[in-house]
Write a protein that binds this DNA or RNA. Structure first.
Lengths: 244, 244
DNA sequence: CCTCCTCTTTGACACAGATCAAGCTATGAG
DNA sequence: CTCATAGCTTGATCTGTGTCAAAGAGGAGG
């Protein structure tokens, strides 16, 4: 999965130092990019980009969680994407974005200036292919989310969300689907992601707790007691469980 | 808008006869494709592709309307896309699709065999760029739809849908945002697109009729009496109205 | 240690939309 | 012309979530 788009740690101990590589040929063709990349940090709650902003750089999430969301005239909010480490912001040939990007936790981005990046796309072959893959992955994710938003019950939405958190942290992280899992969003943010209210999120989360499916230490830290029951509650096909 | 992806009418009177062109350089670089393309027709209701099918060809819709939808284990259905004339089916480097494609009306597709098409992507530069644009357009559309599914009321959903039908038929068609508009989907299909039940769709549509916003001849054919009221009912920003 | 502030939980109640159930209207076949 | 069928409308009722309100954590700063 898109771990090595354009940024990859030079050594695993120092997750901040990335280099640009081509994931296809696995060579440092793009080492030139080293020169023009930079890091930006944002505190939890900071706005990273505003809807309509000129995109002066593209970026990859190194650390933390950011949200993409759209706000209606009257204030209703729908989150349309969640950026975890290794996810990418930016799109070739688009000067602006049509949603807000906000740091949900403290976030570090690895940024590439727009112009050189665009030129890169023309010169190095496989990079644009990689970007296409990313775009299609996002499209698939968006469509799955449409099913969730349009047809799933509150309980199924919550279970799906939790399962997704488990999977993403399992893959990126250290293994062990149990002990050290984190909910990187507040109840309110989760509700905006799932098309619910924060009260409903709270109730459903506590229902799963009461049933012994989840356990919470903190409000944010939890573990899954009964993975099977969790999956059963998602409403998804039986197989989709462990697969990427 | 993506009218001239890979298929463009040779003359406007004969919309069936397409040739492959590169929309960037506007040259017939791809005329070779003439050789390997073919037309397939489907009757309303026909399944065009099944979820998980091997994609042996990519295609462009010439005539008619097709739907993309996902079905949950227990039968709940969510439509995740609507293909109108000039829309494209298929994705580079993906062998399968994860949803069903069904003909909502009689449909004619302009098909290109998979293999030569893939090779084309490697050789002709701007085609893959065009595909990227298409993918990003679809992604934007999917995200707008997420807002609709997650946050809009039944009335807003219906109004948004109708407005979209007006816009799409206005652009592709002959002009005149009035008289000859068609609802290419049944109430049931619309409900699956909007995350509602068919009864709610029927009620909301008739509500708009009773208020004098719409008028129906047929169950399928309608005209917009009060465009402004329609837009006001969508819940969208004031400006988005007439823009592409 | 206390206090403020933000996030969360919990309860009571309301309502939009789902569900269930007839009945209606076209259209096409025989 | 009649019948059958598929799609649509309309009504009555139910229910899952939203809404409103109040009170309970937990952390940060003094």
């Amino acid at each position: 999965m898109s771990i090595d788009l354009l940024t990859r740690p030079k050594c695993s101990e120092c997750p901040i130092r990335h280099r640009a590589v081509c994931s296809r040929c696995d060579e440092d063709e793009l080492l030139q990019l080293e020169v023009i990349k930079s890091y930006k940090s944002f505190a939890a709650g900071d706005q990273i980009m505003w809807r309509g902003d000129e995109l002066t750089y593209v970026a990859s999430v190194v650390k933390g969680v950011a949200t993409l969301s759209k706000t209606m005239e009257d204030g209703r909010v729908q989150m349309v994407g969640l950026l975890l480490p290794s996810d990418f912001i930016g799109r070739p040939d688009r000067r602006t974005i049509d949603f807000d990007v906000v740091a949900a936790t403290d976030v570090t981005l690895c940024c590439f200036a727009r112009k050189p990046f665009d030129k890169l796309l023309d010169t190095v072959p496989h990079v644009s292919q990689r970007l296409m893959e990313i775009a299609l992955d996002e499209l698939d994710a968006a469509r799955d989310w449409m099913v969730l938003l349009g047809r799933k019950t509150a309980r199924e939405k919550i279970a799906t969300f939790v399962e997704m958190m488990v999977r993403r942290q399992h893959v990126g992280g250290l293994g062990l689907d149990k002990h050290p899992l984190v909910l990187p969003l507040t109840r309110d943010e989760i509700s905006n992601y799932l098309g619910l209210t924060l009260e409903t999120v709270s109730r459903q989360l506590n229902a799963l707790k009461k049933e012994g499916v989840l356990r919470f230490n903190d409000r944010r830290r939890f573990e899954v007691i009964d993975m099977q029951a969790l999956h059963a509650a998602t409403g998804d096909d039986a197989d989709g469980g462990v697969l990427s």
